[in-house]
Design a binder for these strands. Structure first.
Lengths: 153, 153
DNA sequence: GTTGAAATTTTATCAGT
DNA sequence: ACTGATAAAATTTCAAC
């Protein structure tokens, strides 16, 4: 499979919306039988187009209502320092996302927590222990207007 | 089910990592049989703890390598204006996430695109058409260091 | 709230086109 | 690359405890 055809893209669009759709259901949507759909999905998995299958949980019901975005700038930007920072961040279970950014800010972190108190403790006990952080600016999510793992393909 | 017990939490931890695990496999991990695991999962779905099951796709392989974070402030903050903005944003297929924030910036948007050119077009043709935007600041992801849909429960 | 068995559905394989 | 059939496995239901 060197390139994806239209059927592959349709399968991916379906699965990123709802991975519980059965191959039979997908086959019916595409006017095919189950076998080719099954084989295409296996190939899409094996080639890495599909990375994984996950359940998305409800943050509010599971008592993680606080989402913070943390903008971090490092003091030193040598390669070693950046790698050190990145590996330290990956250790923090509260961090859901970490991006190295272009521009005046070096990193964006997205953090999920139970309470503002927990965020205070997180910064005090964990982030501030990371040596190389220069500037740290925190933003809090008031309301999630829209959020999806899908992207337009 | 008024409260989640330890078994429920373990099931949720497993499923948010890999929703393809079978009830039988989960049952073995928890020293149970398939039936109670099956029924617990149904309840977790019905009560909304599990929102949905999705396939996570590879942005790079699917030619959406550009992720931008866009910080937006509105000109007018009456309730009507905010709702209008939110509903207009939801229409834009390029927007993966939109958060109403506390502080000087009103909204964070996360946007996925094929190229910087596509971002330029997106801002020119779509974002700038939304009337109520005051300030718009764009940041680009150089590298995704870490990103997960899981959160710590 | 669990076990264990049975019924149903889905996944996986494969010969034929 | 797909169809249709078949085998294997998982899901779903349920009686009994």
């Amino acid at each position: 499979m060197e390139k994806l055809d239209d059927i592959d893209l349709k399968i991916l669009r379906i699965l990123q919306k709802n991975s519980k759709k059965t191959t039979k259901e997908i086959a019916q949507m595409l006017n095919l039988t189950a076998s080719p759909v099954y084989e295409r999905i296996r190939r899409l998995e094996n080639k890495g187009y599909i990375k994984k299958y996950v359940a998305l949980l409800d943050k509010i019901q599971l008592n993680r209502p606080i989402t913070a975005v943390c903008m971090v700038s490092l003091r030193y930007h040598n390669e070693g320092f950046i790698e050190k920072f990145e590996s330290q961040i990956k250790e923090l279970k509260e961090v859901q996302e970490c991006y190295h950014m272009a521009g005046k800010v070096d990193f964006f972190l997205k953090i999920n927590l139970q309470s503002l108190d927990a965020y205070h403790e997180f910064v005090r006990l964990k982030l501030s222990k990371i040596e190389n952080i220069g500037v740290l600016e925190s933003y809090f999510v008031l309301k999630e207007i829209y959020s999806t793992t899908e992207f337009f393909i």
